[in-house]
Simulated assay, not measured.
Amino acid sequence: MRIPDEQRGPHRGEAHAGSVASRLNWLRAAVLGANDGIISTAGLVVGVAAATTDAGAIATAGIAGLTAGAVSMALGEYVSVSSQRDTERALIAKERDELSSLPDEELTELVGLLEARGLSSGTALLVADELTRSDALGAHLTFELGIDQEHLANPWAAAGSSAAAFAVGAVLPLVAILLPPAAVRIPVAFVAVIVALALTGLLSAHLGGAAKGVAVVRLLVGGALAMAVTFAIGHLLGVAVG
């Protein structure tokens, strides 16, 4: 009896959909990392620019903030994804052991998982039997745990992409505050940051399927508030020192 493709478990179309979803998740993470870089660096350089007109001091603070932020993002992402990968590997090893020591129980479990997806008992048994003979571990990882052992999380890739995204975002406010004349540095940087946040907010909302207006307003309010607070602090410190 030939089992219809839709009853065979993951197939080429589902694998492609999973790949697309994975790429969208990475892109969404990159956009969020860039947002962090924009907001944190903008707040830093605006605060320093409010305290002094010395371009060297502003550049030093901005570059230091960019470097520290990128390293922090990379380290945090590396630790987080490494923990995720370790967990996935432990689950794979556990499932492999169970398949070796309890094959009948695992087959029954797979039948139950397939039935839960809408297959009849007879069809579920046929599908489970074929999947077990073909790739028992892969079937259980997919239907029971939602893990693809061929595409486990990569902590180095996650760390690198997070650091790069943060750095790209941080460059914009740094350039925007250093290139204009001292008299208009802060207004130019403020406008540039607001525009950048609006664009990244639209993109992140589109990728996440969220309401664009809410996402953009949230980012704009947060970014404007961060720059306003650091500007006030920098201005007060500059006046006090002066």
Rank of each mutant, 00 (worst) to 15 (best):
L174K: 07
V127N: 00
E150R: 08
L107D: 03
G160R: 12
A136F: 10
L91R: 09
D129L: 10
A167M: 13
A153N: 08
A116V: 01
L114S: 00
L145H: 15
A153M: 08
A157S: 06
A183K: 04
T200I: 05
L145Q: 14
L125E: 11
L174P: 05
E109L: 15
A159L: 15
P187K: 05
R185L: 05
R185H: 06
I147C: 05
A189G: 03
A183D: 09
A163F: 12
P155S: 08
G146S: 10
W156C: 13
V188R: 04
L107N: 06
L203I: 11
P155Y: 07
V168L: 15
L113F: 11
A182T: 10
A139W: 09
V195A: 08
L114H: 02
I186R: 06
L114V: 01
A192L: 05
E98R: 14
I177Y: 05
H140M: 13
D97N: 10
P180T: 03
E106N: 06
G201M: 07
E106I: 04
T142L: 03
D97I: 12
A153F: 11
V127D: 00
L202D: 02
H140W: 10
E98A: 13
D104T: 11
I186C: 07
V111F: 12
D135N: 15
L126Q: 03
E115V: 03
A167L: 14
L172G: 08
A136V: 02
F190L: 07
I92A: 06
L99R: 04
L113Q: 12
A136P: 00
V111L: 06
L203V: 09
E150D: 13
L126C: 01
P180E: 02
E98K: 09
Q149N: 06
S204K: 04
K94R: 13
A136E: 01
L141S: 06
L119E: 00
L91G: 01
L145I: 13
T132D: 05
L145C: 12
R185M: 08
F143E: 09
L131S: 06
L131G: 06
V191F: 08
V168Y: 15
I147A: 04
L174V: 07
A128W: 11
P173E: 01
D129R: 14
V127R: 00
R96S: 14
E95P: 07
F166H: 01
H140K: 11
A165V: 10
L174G: 07
P181Y: 14
A192V: 13
S161Q: 07
L114N: 00
E130I: 01
V188D: 01
V171W: 15
E98Y: 02
T123P: 00
L91W: 04
I92G: 05
T123M: 05
D97E: 12
D135Y: 14
H140A: 11
H151V: 09
L99T: 00
G122T: 14
L137Y: 07
T108D: 15
A170W: 04
L179T: 02
S101V: 14
P173W: 03
F166R: 02
A128L: 09
L125I: 08
A167I: 11
Q149W: 11
A153P: 05
L178T: 10
D97V: 12
D104Q: 12
A157P: 00
L172M: 12
